[in-house]
Design a protein around this nucleic acid. Structure first.
Lengths: 197, 197
DNA sequence: CCGTTTGCAATACGACTGCATTGCAAAGAA
DNA sequence: TTCTTTGCAATGCAGTCGTATTGCAAACGG
């Protein structure tokens, strides 16, 4: 086989350019030529690695998700072994918030993809089970409620689902500028206070 | 003046068509011609009432917001006078959730606009103060915390901001299909249980 | 009746889109 | 060397985009 290039590297190079375009000009500005220009390559090369625009979008979406997961894992790993559940939880959830500029940029792209997937459901398989697993993991970190209200055995699941949704909502409001980072972290800590009271 | 037409009516007619297009083909499918076709009018007429596409988008955005507000007000008004704070709060927040198909459609459009406004900040002024007012209103409905943790006088604000973010996040997950309506309402009720314990 | 103003339709234009096609240089395989 | 396969660049094409322009019919003021 001829020239040796790593296709995966090329693809992520292009996907990174796509994310940069999306972050500061919106998903609607993502075109083969714009992405190519941003990546500093020819439009033909983009076509060579992604036969279709949707394929490129789907790949970029997977990169966004992987990045988010890596961000969380890095934050958790920095805690060392066997951290307190509350600290672990706070670290994990805070890593999901777009608090610094880099995370904000990723968040903007993720938000854009959020409504994109609504029109391209096929591009985001396995997103639901991922969320479900995360909810269960969070539920395992929560203290058992002192007295499970009769008839409701899923209190921990509800609390975990709510906590995750809280973080998602805080992220949205952070990106929209409605909340400041200080407000968002205060709201998150207040909720953790409630749950660990 | 010649022919008598109500411009506002025409504009909302067009905006409604825009929202229909956006709801089932995405914001990127919103073009003058598509909107005109959906509204059953000529493209020229759309241009007559909105000299620019951005102007049309901004108007549609305001319609989306007004609709959401109307939905909430209708739900609250249906409660009658002087409801219990908790019931009022639950009704208000549940009205923000995209639980039925109509609300889901509106929610999809709102979500799309959410990332649109990130690129067109000028089109969404006064959104921040609106949110701030809503947070303060919610804070007023919450029971006073038994013992304000020393040094933190804003506990009610934090709880209210968190509650609003929770609902936003639940909405996002509902639209994304990660949560079912039952899960979302359970998470909301669980949170209200916590706050009104 | 006449002129003006308004409501709307139609068309034209240049820019841009995703995609198909073509061509060619570089790098092993023979 | 020659052949084949790969990596990539360039160009073309049909279509859509937003917007500017033009034209005309209907309604009113005079």
């Amino acid at each position: 086989m001829p020239r040796k290039v790593d296709p995966r590297q090329r693809r992520t190079l292009i996907a990174d350019a796509l994310m940069r375009v999306a972050a500061d000009r919106g998903l609607e500005a993502v075109s083969l030529r714009h992405v190519a220009a941003e990546a500093g390559v020819s439009a033909g090369m983009v076509q060579h690695y992604f036969t279709t625009k949707d394929e490129m979008m789907a790949f970029a979406l997977s990169v966004v998700r992987d990045r988010g997961q890596a961000r969380v894992e890095a934050a958790v790993a920095a805690l060392g072994a066997d951290p307190q559940p509350r600290l672990l939880l706070r670290t994990l959830l805070a890593a999901l918030l777009p608090l610094d500029d880099a995370a904000r940029e990723d968040g903007r792209v993720a938000l854009a993809f959020l409504s994109w997937t609504a029109l391209h459901p096929a591009a985001a398989p396995g997103l639901r089970p991922d969320t479900a697993r995360l909810v269960e993991f969070i539920a395992g970190l929560l203290p058992r409620p002192p007295a499970p209200p009769a008839g409701r055995a899923e209190a921990a699941s509800d609390a975990a689902a709510g906590l995750l949704a809280l973080v998602e909502g805080l992220g949205v409001y952070l990106l929209g500028g409605q909340y400041t980072p200080a407000q968002a972290t205060a709201a998150l800590d207040h909720q953790l206070d409630l749950l660990f009271a």
